[in-house]
Design a binder for these strands. Structure first.
Length: 584
RNA sequence: GCACCAGUAGCUCAGUGGAUAGAGCGUCUGCCUCCGGAGCAGAAGGUCACAGGUUCGAGUCCUGUCUGGUGUACCA
């Protein structure tokens, strides 16, 4: 990584200046390497001289001169320039830059892999939407972020497992069971009424607010009644013969199974595949809930009062205690979450565990961190990433209040790629008001097509090369023939890719932030650099075949990086664009 | 009330304490005899919510204020 190399180079220069007595003994500040916005400021810049000026009691320019004089020569730096008030600017050697193209070609689709994780085991748990309805656009944001993050970490040499936590044991599931049971019987013609003879579904819906029948969608399977119908289609009326309590639980459970099948299918079409689907109920069935409670009791973290069992998080610096077991004897989801995370760290031995939550779960973070501490784990090993909520027409999207857009409805129109791209194109801190009309616009208003078009264009050039009788021999291309400013700018962009991957992964693991938006932005800029090259440097020149070969090599390198970036984002890298119906 | 997130171009948003704040869309003006016009060139558009502070240097860090979102449950 050039940045690291320069940082190390400058560090050595400062050390030798200190040893030579040219600089006073002082604490060297962190040497951060920046990319100047202006080309005349070189490729990389450091501002360490200005940071040292005060303690060194020397002018920044003088310090910069001393550092520059102590820099060891390298093959990749062509010039070092000092600029007021004390910047040291580095300009890369153009021959070295040209040579890097061969390196990209040699690495192929492993270009962008960086050494960071040393194969340590990381789990990314994401989506984990309640199995009581379809994957919404809100969950899709989670899915796209989580999957892309997992891919980035894999590229950064982590051993990553993707996991979906199925909440099949909580209160919402109880309400779901009730709904399924009602609709199941209703669909089979069994009168479902309350003691006054009123239809129960209506009463539930209007008076109790319990989820019953979701809003109608084009695809009828998006509501509990539709799930009940599907269950009947598979299983018939056999549950009516069972005792009611048993039947209610079984119908609910079978309903969950149907929901999960659909959701797994939707996510798969989005390009999101999970290694593990972990069921909350399993924590109960295998005694892990009881075990964790005992552990917390033994650790002195539990108190009983007001008929409930509490986690005494206030003793660990939290604002308040949290209920583990309600006074009615039913455990909260907090308990299963504790057992679940214990299972992740202790039973399965992940070194880092990443949870990706929507902002409405933000309040859950401090107590989970406190629990980590109580159980003897490092709170820093649990990385909880939060992204802001998705709304529709300014209204919060939620399965509970039935204001939501199913992923399926949008994906059927657009395909997965525009969703993948746009869901990670804004930072997690930015809230997202989903505009359906914009999302389904398959025209040039959508930057996703600009990027894919650029990839298709690289492929197109090779098709044309064959037609023109120019056989690509990129391995033997004379890259020293490159040199046009647009060619050099493109090469520089290509070299930023591994740095981007590294920084996204590092900031996630070290700082708990998911800067996934950097991938779409990087890709857009790369596409722009390629199009400038395409404009300025005609690739297939019969009159200058050596130059054509060099430019084909650069085109192939660009194609490689565009494809890799698109793949990391879970998108396709099309060989050609289908032009579809174009709005005038 | 308290806590977290946000407030940057008409709209949607980028912007590791660095040099003259950027992109997409929208608007306006040009460009199809050449590798795909889902393209390219250019223009207009800014009190970085407001007020203080720290710093050689602040959109970025600190304090306060305003506005919006979220949380503050024996919901998840």
């Amino acid at each position: 990584m050039i940045k690291d190399d320069i940082s190390a180079l400058v560090g050595q220069a400062i050390s030798s200046a200190l040893a030579a007595g040219q600089l006073p003994e002082l604490v060297t500040p962190e040497i951060s390497v920046e990319r100047p916005a202006k080309p005349e400021h070189g490729d990389y810049a450091i501002s360490v001289a200005m940071k040292m000026a005060r303690t060194a009691r020397m002018s920044p320019l003088k310090i910069a001169e001393i550092i520059k004089a102590n820099l060891a020569p390298t093959d990749y730096i062509a010039a070092v320039e000092i600029a007021a008030p004390g910047f040291i600017n580095f300009r890369l050697n153009e021959n070295w830059l040209k040579g890097q193209v061969q390196g990209i070609l040699a690495q192929g689709d492993t270009y962008g892999n960086v050494a960071l994780g040393q194969q340590s085991r990381v789990q990314v748990e994401f989506v984990s939407a309640n199995p009581t309805g379809p994957i919404t656009i809100g969950s899709a944001r989670n899915a796209c972020m989580g999957d892309t993050l997992a891919s980035v970490l894999q590229a950064a040499d982590y051993q990553v497992e993707r996991e979906y936590y199925v909440n099949d044991a909580g209160n919402q599931v109880r309400a779901w069971n009730e709904s399924m049971w009602i609709y199941y019987r209703d669909e089979l013609g069994v009168p479902v009424t309350d003691d006054k003879g009123e239809p129960l579904a209506l009463k539930l819906d209007e008076e109790t607010g319990q989820p019953t029948e979701a809003r109608e969608f084009k695809d009828v399977r998006y509501n509990a009644r539709a799930y009940a119908r599907e269950l009947i289609a598979h299983e018939g009326n056999r549950f009516l013969d069972l005792p009611e309590d048993e039947a209610r639980a079984l119908v609910g459970k079978e309903g969950v199974k149907i929901v999960l099948e659909h959701n797994e299918e939707d996510l798969a079409q989005l390009g999101v595949l999970f290694d593990v689907w972990f069921h909350e109920q399993a924590l109960y069935d295998t005694g892990q809930i009881d075990a964790i409670l005992q552990m917390l009791r033994d650790g002195g973290h539990v108190a009983e009062r007001e008929g409930a069992v509490w986690f005494v998080s206030s003793a660990l610096g939290q604002d308040k205690d949290n209920v583990l077991i309600r006074s009615n004897g039913i455990p909260t989801y907090f308990v299963s979450d504790i057992a679940y995370h214990y299972n992740k760290f202790k039973t399965r031995g992940f070194e880092k565990v990443i949870d990706l939550w929507a902002a409405d779960h933000q309040g859950h973070i401090p107590r989970m961190k406190a629990v980590m501490q109580a159980l003897g784990f490092s709170p820093d090993d649990l990385i909880i990433l939060v992204y802001q909520l998705v709304s529709v027409n300014g209204l919060r999207m939620s399965k509970r209040n039935k204001n939501f857009i199913p992923l399926r409805e949008v994906m059927d129109i657009t395909g997965p790629d525009p969703i993948r791209y746009n869901m990670i194109a804004r930072s997690p801190e930015a809230s997202l008001d989903f505009d359906v009309n914009l999302a389904i616009a398959q025209n040039d208003t959508n930057p996703v097509y600009y990027v894919q078009y650029s990839h298709a264009r690289t492929a197109s050039i090779f098709r044309r090369a064959e037609e023109a009788g120019i056989t690509p021999e990129i391995d033997r291309a004379d890259l020293s023939l490159l040199g046009h400013p647009s060619e050099m700018a493109l090469i520089r962009h290509l070299l930023l890719f591994p740095e981007t991957v590294l920084e996204v992964a590092k900031n996630c693991i070290d700082n708990g932030v998911a800067e996934l938006q950097r991938l779409p932005f990087y890709t857009l800029e790369l596409a722009r650099a390629f199009n400038a090259f395409y404009r300025d440097c005609y690739v297939l020149d019969q009159a200058n075949l050596p130059l054509s070969q060099a430019r084909l090599a650069l085109t192939q390198a660009t194609r490689t990086v565009l494809a890799r970036a698109l793949t990391l984002m879970g998108m396709s890298a099309p060989e050609r664009m289908d032009r579809g119906e174009q709005p005038a």
